Lab assay of single mutants.
Amino acid sequence: NQASVVANQLIPISTALTLVMMRSEVVTPVGIPAEDIPRLVSMTVNRAVPLGTTLMPDMVKGYA
């Protein structure tokens, strides 16, 4: 089972991601792979991401 990136807090729309905002967790459905966390830092989300939500590729500008 692959770990995915999960929001560690509410991430408001257009917020630049930082390490403290994300954690890795094995979830269903599978989202962005946890090993991509370093790549996600400073990318922005294009929607509000509630606490505990799995980050999907279409939620992060420039990721997909």
Rank of each mutant, 00 (worst) to 15 (best):
I32D: 00
G52H: 08
V26S: 08
P50D: 15
S4M: 01
P57C: 06
V30W: 09
V20E: 15
P12K: 08
A34C: 07
T18M: 07
I32C: 04
M21R: 00
V49I: 15
A3E: 09
M22R: 00
A16K: 15
D36C: 10
V5Y: 03
V41N: 03
T18N: 05
I37V: 07
V6D: 00
T54R: 03
T44R: 13
P33E: 04
E25C: 07
Y63Q: 03
I13H: 13
P57S: 09
G62N: 11
V26Q: 11
P50W: 05
E25G: 11
R39D: 07
V45S: 06
V6R: 02
E35M: 15
L19Q: 10
T18C: 05
L51P: 10
V41T: 05
L55Q: 00
T15C: 06
R23T: 09
V5T: 06
P57D: 06
V27H: 03
G62C: 06
A16S: 11
S14P: 03
P12V: 04
L10I: 10
M43W: 07
V26A: 11
M43Y: 10
R47C: 06
V27W: 03
V27C: 06
S42R: 08
N1Y: 14
G52F: 04
N1T: 15
E35F: 13
D36A: 08
M59Y: 14
N1H: 11
L40Y: 02
L19R: 14
T54N: 02
A48Y: 12
S4D: 01
T18V: 06
L55R: 01
Y63T: 03
L19N: 08
M21D: 04
A48P: 14
L51W: 08
N1R: 10
I37K: 05
P12R: 08
R39S: 12
S14E: 14
V45A: 05
V60G: 02
S4L: 02
A48F: 13
V60L: 08
E35P: 07
Q2F: 14
G62V: 04
G31M: 02
R23V: 06
P38N: 12
M21A: 05
V30H: 14
T18Q: 11
K61Q: 15
R39C: 07
Q9T: 10
A3V: 09
T53R: 12
S24E: 09
S42P: 00
A34P: 06
V27I: 06
G31P: 01
M56T: 10
P12C: 05
E35L: 14
A7I: 04
K61L: 15
M56S: 07
P12E: 11
S4E: 00
V49D: 02
G31V: 02
V27F: 03
V20T: 15
D36V: 08
I11N: 01
S14W: 14
A7G: 03
G62Y: 10
L40T: 00
L40F: 02
A64Q: 14
G62L: 06
R47L: 09
A16I: 13
V27T: 10
Q2R: 10
G52M: 04
P50I: 05
P57F: 06
V26T: 10
S42C: 05
L55W: 02
V45T: 13
P12W: 04
G52E: 03
T53Y: 11
R23S: 08
D58M: 13
M22I: 09
V26G: 04
D36L: 11
Q2D: 13
T44G: 04
M22V: 06
N46V: 11
S14L: 10
P50M: 07
Q9Y: 08
V60T: 00
M59R: 01
I32K: 01
V5W: 01
I13Q: 14
V27P: 00
S24I: 07
T54M: 04
M59T: 07
Y63H: 04
V41Q: 05
A48Q: 14
P12Q: 09
M59A: 10
Q2I: 14
A64G: 11
D58W: 13
R23A: 08
